[in-house]
Design a protein around this nucleic acid. Structure first.
Ligand SMILES: [Zn+2]
Ligand SMILES: [Zn+2]
Ligand SMILES: [Zn+2]
Ligand SMILES: [Zn+2]
Lengths: 146, 146
DNA sequence: TGACACACGTTATAGCATAACGCAATTGAT
DNA sequence: ATCAATTGCGTTATGCTATAACGTGTGTCA
């Protein structure tokens, strides 16, 4: 009864908890911390942080959610469809960058092939094997900077 | 008696606590968390996290220390001398990237002008005003990947 | 049927960071 | 000299973020 429920869609089947967490993030207009997500889901039976973290771990693994390291918070994936660096595992995409507005909280997710390339070139030259790359720009969005 | 002690060098004068914290980081061969720094300085009279965090805040402000967001840890600045993007406030440098070995903890700090340029161009196009940019590559260094 | 994998729930604990108070020393007017 | 503003410091308490360790239930597949 706790197994994932398969759906007619292409995305990986999500369990109930994973769906609840993803829906909260997908509807949010700013990054959310795990504990904020927890509070939003108290009415759906969530009682402990682990319920959130376990769902987040899976959603991160599926590539449906991103963690913003500079905020200790999470966002639903909203990367543009440009699959130029897709890695082929279904939804997958290459390294992505985030622009985070410190005033309104809005996050823009984008991919820049040249940035990826330059960082990859540095790694290759130094014989460094990248596993995960974080790029986050904090600042003010166009609307808030005006 | 708590005022900074001026020195014949060019760097900003550091207070006793700031010097102690910087020395610990400068001698370390891997990033250190604030609490680890605290433990190293118990013998020098440190008793509370705030003593560390306040020193770190100043050192970050001076550009002598960097925070690694993906690790919640700190490193002494070790950027190469290339001052191509120096901002002129003494030691200052432009956006810097970190390659962090998940096996041995070694951190390489580097600057890539083209990456800076591309991220700046994106920001300009989107009318986003960057305040601080984080670039961190987690992976395995040459020595550990062998 | 039994071994296994996986999602789940709960309690406790670990690790990271700041709020709020008050004191001491320095600085730089007036 | 004296006062006000600033800065650094020390302490206590608190809050936020994340994981360890345990046990349960359920579906899968020899
Ligand atoms: Zn994405
Ligand atoms: Zn904004
Ligand atoms: Zn540096
Ligand atoms: Zn290494």
């Amino acid at each position: 009864m706790n197994a994932p429920v398969s759906t007619p869609t292409s995305a990986p089947a999500l369990t109930k908890n994973q769906s609840l967490v993803f829906d909260v993030l997908d509807r949010a207009d700013a990054p959310m911390s795990a504990y904020t997500i927890l509070d939003r889901l108290r009415d759906h039976g969530f009682r402990a942080p682990l319920q959130v973290y376990r769902a987040l771990d899976k959603l991160l693994e599926f590539g449906m959610v991103h963690r913003l390291e500079s905020l200790n918070a999470f966002v639903a994936c909203a990367h543009p469809e440009s699959e130029c660096c897709g890695k082929g595992h279904g939804h997958g995409h290459g390294t992505v960058a985030f622009a985070i507005c410190e005033s309104c909280g809005h996050v823009s997710e984008f991919h820049d092939h040249e940035v990826d390339h330059r960082l990859g070139a540095w790694a290759k030259a130094k014989n460094f094997k990248p596993a995960k790359t974080t790029i986050e720009i904090r600042g003010l969005c166009g609307a808030c900077a005006a």
